[in-house]
Design a protein around this nucleic acid. Structure first.
Lengths: 367, 367
DNA sequence: AAAATTACCGAGAACGTTTCCGAAAATGAT
DNA sequence: ATCATTTTCGGAAACGTTCTCGGTAATTTT
């Protein structure tokens, strides 16, 4: 049965919704009964306000009755309804995070950093994914905003152009921190990686290794990080008086497939360079895979440097020289900035540029 | 400045909170003024209930006044406060997702599948991460439950034992769908991958290739998938009358490091097997890396098969034979089950087992 | 012992919705 | 013109909290 090896495909998912009329269906009519502060009050024969005071540990409450109320609350498994609380106060102790995707390791790592700051401080983190789609992104933000999150950490999708809504809520004093993919004209704190400097450094490393005909596999042109990395590459080349015409830049994307595609084209057109600086690790990796298939030797014939968005670089052979971004720290930094703004109610937009580390491995070292 | 290559470390993040008294601080005293249904009513000189009816397109409303109200609402940029709505009705049109982690590709892929079903149906997806911690997980679920999500999709952490809370909300009729890491005794729908069958198949594949002394690098013992995969391995071995004593099983974990560690031990103890079935790709990969370092030939000396949780298998050399799980489809399946339960208000727990595909690559094929 | 203070508690408003119910106005039937 | 019906609307309660404000009862002060 399961021996048609390589031709096995996903089986169909059986989704005929079961007939509701089925006599086997057992209906759950039980209303989800959250017990409320009112129930507690009735049970104990005290007023609602007294219960509230007891639970919130306020002044104006007799220690004895407070104990009684608290123990009763535990007995009945009471927990306050945050919806009602949010409606009453204006604070939810939730913060929102919106990212373009999390199929790559980058954003999940950042989010983990965010959570590690937020959770101990009593904030819950609600995460939404915009799928690189400006519309979904906007509706995500609206959802979170309307649900009264206390603040928002966001990395914009590659398609976001309309900023009026964001501008208006920022002007209304809603705390937002941008990271990684930022919109410069939005007046919020920003956490960034110094893509320019590190791209410059990666390129210079290749140059110092003796590579001359170096090309850059560029990322999507509207993303700030692609632009910065390309600029870093260009300036390093210029500094060393190397050629930086159009045919040193090749539009790719951010995936392994992108790297493969561009590299295949290059080989076909007989335009094999000396060295490659990939805008991301996957792109560099894709290029490496194609080169290996063609028997091109790395780093002897062609040197390769990537830009880390994953843990792939440790696995490929030769191991890939790459720049490691402080993803986790980025999340922490953004979280701290947001907390600060939420708790002080003061907005002092500031830019934080984080530093990384350069991992020199086999793919770029010519001995 | 940035030329101390391999010694570059993350720079310190500067987090002295700015002095609030700074005269440069500009305070945002503007209260975030959401305009409400009440504002609309006053503006138009009608009652609150009329506005509500108009906006919700109910009966009992004059088309003319409805138009007037709607256009005024748009003019003022009104959007209803979902907090108040949730308090009133009992439905939030939000669903919650709780996963142990999303640093690996597995869960993010599943979540993407969930979203692609939910979003078009008007549901927003709130995601939380339990960090493999039972406590965090419980508080995540409580947060979501108390925030009145309409239902929950969850994959339990590896440490979850106490199920009383989950049981109680399920009994109260709260819709939950489990996937991947499930707790059998919780009476909810479950979406699973047939780990047993595919592990059996992977093992049999190794056997048919002529490997005899095959070992299994086991996952954490309390996770259902580790248990199923180990059982599949064992039964395949038994079927072919191969030895399945204790020294065919090695406790590892789920990461590359785990694979490296176990493999190093095996080599040190001179216990090199014929072939390896890794509980996950990273584990198999870790083992491969160590073997390559020791000059052990794959697949000639040792065959390797993994179990996919990532895209790593395409990158390593030799390419890794692995089982591909339908992660995205898993998410879709779970989402559909949940929707069904939410909208019909009927709970008919059902188990869905999804099928995958077997990718035979170089690491397991002896020619 | 009367007055002043303090400790404790309850009533009720408010947050922004939805919805039930009754009232007024408009329409139709006789 | 009268009565019955329909259309359209407003009042008010409810969802579960928090919090201000008064009001007793208990305690202290003189």
């Amino acid at each position: 049965m399961y021996f048609q090896f390589s031709t096995c495909r996903f089986s169909e998912i059986p989704f005929a919704f079961p007939k509701i009329s089925s006599i086997f269906a057992y209906v759950l009519q039980v209303i989800m009964k959250h017990i409320t502060i009112k129930d507690l009050a009735k049970e104990l024969g005290v007023s609602i306000s007294t219960v509230s005071r007891a639970l919130n540990d306020k002044y104006d409450i007799n220690p004895a009755t407070r104990e009684k109320i608290i123990s009763k609350a535990q007995e009945l498994g009471y927990s306050p309804n945050p919806i009602a609380q949010k409606l009453q106060q204006k604070k939810s102790n939730n913060i929102g995070v919106v990212v373009p995707e999390f199929r790559n390791a980058f954003f999940p790592d950042v989010i983990t950093g965010i959570q590690d700051i937020m959770l101990p401080l009593g904030y819950q983190v609600l995460i939404m994914q915009s799928n690189e789609n400006a519309e979904t992104e906007l509706s995500n933000v609206k959802t979170l905003y309307n649900n009264m999150v206390d603040g928002l950490i966001i990395s914009f999708s590659s398609e976001t152009h309309k900023t009026s809504y964001y501008k208006s809520i920022i002007d209304d004093g809603f705390p937002i921190v941008q990271f990684n993919r930022v919109i410069a004209k939005l007046n919020t704190s920003k956490v960034l990686f110094d893509d320019y400097a590190w791209a410059f450094m990666a390129t210079e490393h290749l140059i110092l290794q003796g590579y001359k005909n170096i090309i850059h596999l560029k990322g999507p042109r509207h993303l700030t990080f692609s632009i910065s990395r390309a600029k870093g590459f260009e300036d390093a080349m210029k500094k060393h008086k190397l050629h930086t015409g159009d045919n040193q830049f090749y539009d790719s994307g951010v995936t392994i497939e992108d790297g493969k595609r561009v590299m295949s084209e290059l080989i076909e057109c007989n335009k094999l360079p000396d060295a490659i600086f990939g805008v991301t690790d996957p792109v560099a990796l894709g290029a490496m895979i194609v080169m290996k298939e063609h028997g091109i030797q790395i780093p002897k014939q062609v040197g390769v440097v990537g830009f880390s968005e994953s843990r792939l670089s440790e696995v490929i052979q030769p191991t890939l020289t790459t720049i490691k971004q402080p993803t986790y720290e980025m999340g922490q930094a953004a979280a701290k900035l947001l907390i600060q703004e939420i708790e002080t109610k003061i907005s002092i937009p500031q830019n934080i540029k984080l530093s990384g580390s350069f991992k020199i491995k086999q793919s770029s070292v010519r001995i």
